[in-house]
Structures are given as structure tokens and as C-alpha cells.
Amino acid sequence: GKMTGIVKWFNADKGFGFITPDDGSKDVFVHFSAIQNDGYKSSDEGQKVSFTIESGAKGPAAGNVTSL
């Protein structure tokens, strides 16, 4: 299901970062391709987002990331 969290950091040059879930669980990796914004796929530190957890090649990753 959908979770909410805060972007801990995001490196636009490398195209990835981490989200800290609101439920206190482990930080989740986020790749720019998962960000659902139109246009520039980046996110700012401290941005509140909703997301799903997908199982990626390197473990859990955020999917369907949407700014709230």
C-alpha cells in the first residue's frame, strides 16, 4: 500500500536519494525514475512524499513517488 515519508536527501546529479518513512521503518532508496512529477524528476530534502515499496535488484526501493 501507499506510505508517506520525508525525502532525507536527493542527489539530482546521480539521480537517487533516500526517503525516511513516517512509520519509523528503515530509510528507503529512491531512484529518479520512480518520481511521478511531470518534467524534471528530482526531489528536495524535506519534501513530504507518498510512495509504494517495490522490490528492486538491490533490495527495497520506493515506487510511485508523489509530492504531497
Rank of each mutant, 00 (worst) to 15 (best):
H31D: 04
N11M: 02
I6G: 02
K58P: 06
D13W: 10
I6H: 09
H31K: 02
K2N: 09
A61Y: 15
K8L: 07
T52Y: 09
G39L: 12
A34E: 08
T52R: 04
T66F: 07
K14W: 11
T52H: 07
A57S: 12
T20L: 08
D27G: 03
D44W: 15
T52E: 06
K26C: 11
A12F: 12
K26Y: 07
W9N: 01
F32L: 10
A57G: 10
I53V: 10
D38F: 13
A62W: 03
M3S: 07
E54A: 07
M3A: 06
N64W: 09
K14C: 11
D38C: 14
K41R: 11
K58N: 11
A61N: 09
F10Q: 03
S42R: 10
V49L: 03
S33E: 05
G46H: 09
K58L: 11
V28L: 10
W9S: 01
G5S: 01
D44A: 15
D13Q: 13
Y40D: 09
I6C: 11
V28K: 00
D38K: 12
N37Y: 13
V65K: 01
F16P: 01
V30Q: 00
N64R: 06
F29V: 01
T20K: 13
K26A: 13
E45Y: 14
Y40A: 10
G24M: 05
D13I: 13
G17N: 03
K2Q: 10
D13K: 14
D22V: 05
I35G: 01
N11A: 06
K8D: 04
D23K: 05
G15F: 05
G15K: 05
S25N: 06
K58H: 12
G24D: 03
V28P: 00
D22H: 05
T20A: 10
D23Y: 05
T4M: 06
N37M: 14
N64L: 08
W9P: 03
N37A: 13
A57V: 13
T4C: 12
K14R: 10
I6R: 08
I53G: 03
G39D: 11
V28T: 02
P21Y: 06
H31L: 07
S25P: 03
Q36F: 10
K48V: 09
F16Y: 14
E45K: 15
V7A: 00
F10P: 04
D22G: 02
G17F: 06
G15Y: 04
G15L: 04
W9V: 03
I19N: 01
T52K: 04
E54L: 13
D13V: 13
G63K: 15
A62Y: 01
T4I: 07
F10G: 01
S43V: 15
F32Y: 12
S42H: 12
E45C: 14
V7H: 01
K58Y: 14
T20F: 04
S55Y: 15
A61G: 04
A62C: 06
Q36S: 12
